[in-house]
């Protein structure tokens, strides 16, 4: 489901990773923060938020809710409207 194009075949999308983790700000110089962001992931059972890109469509990055246990998709929103940002960092 693409918020721009509507319901589409899954083959039009590419997976882009965990969308629950905020990307560290560019100025972050603490390697531990970057390490955790790049390498450490939870593997939750149930509702999860993931990045997907509608590559064979409008090319927008989406944040999709998906139940990892049932594969049932939930809400999908444009990533730029829905992204998790670092606390305190101006968006």
């Amino acid at each position: 489901m693409c918020p721009i194009c509507g319901e589409r075949d899954y083959t039009e999308f590419r997976y882009g990773g965990d969308a629950t983790k905020p990307r560290p700000s560019r100025e972050t110089a603490d390697p531990k923060v970057w390490h955790d962001y790049v390498f450490l992931f939870d593997n939750p059972k149930g509702l999860h938020r993931e990045y997907w890109q509608h590559v064979l469509g409008c090319r927008q990055w989406l944040v999709l809710e998906r139940n990892t246990a049932t594969n049932e998709p939930g809400e999908s929103r444009l990533a730029r409207m829905d992204v998790v940002t670092c606390e305190g960092e101006p968006k």
Partner: peptide, 14 residues
Amino acid sequence: MSWLEFLLQTAWMD
């Protein structure tokens, strides 16, 4: 291309 779009749409929206 996808990487640039990712950064612009998820991190550097400004």
